[in-house]
Amino acid sequence: MESPSSRRPDVAGLAIAFILLALAGLIWWDLSRLQLNAVYGVGPKAMPMVVAAGLGILAIGNAIAAFRGDLPERESLQWQPIILIIGGLAVMMGFIHFGVGFILATTVLFAATAAAFGRRAFLVDLAIGFVLGLIIYVVFSKLLALSLPMGPIERLL
C-alpha cells in the first residue's frame, strides 16, 4: 500500500474507528440497563460484553490502519444516483405508512431507480413500475392470500 496519502491519517478510516467505538459504548450502555439475570449459568450480559470488547479492540485496529494509510484507494463518486434510490425507498415507506398503497409505492421506487441508472424517460418508467406493482399485488392477494399494504387502487381490485 504505497498510496500517496500514507503520510497523513485517513479521515474516513478514523471515522470508521470512531463509529465502532461508539457502537461498543452503545452496547455497554444497553447492557447496564438489563434488569434480570439468569438464575443458573451465564447471564444475558456476557455476550454483549464480549461483542463490545471486540468492537473496542477492532476500533483500535481500524484506527491504526487509518494512520498507516492501509485503506484502499477510493474513486470519486456521484451522489445524485444514491440520493435518487434512497429517495425512492423513502417515498415508498411514506406511501405505505400513509396508506397510499403498495402499487403506487412500487411505481415510484421503480422509476426513481431507473432514473438513478441514467434513464431519462421518467413517464415510461412510471408506467412500467405501475404494471409491475399491479401484477405483484394481484399474484399475492389472489393466489397466495397475503395482504400487501393497501391503498385506494388496491381496494378497487
Partner: peptide, 15 residues
Amino acid sequence: PQPWLYAGILVFATM
C-alpha cells in the same frame, strides 16, 4: 437494460 434490471431488483427486494 441495466436501469430496468436494477429497478426490478429493488422492487423484488422490497416486496
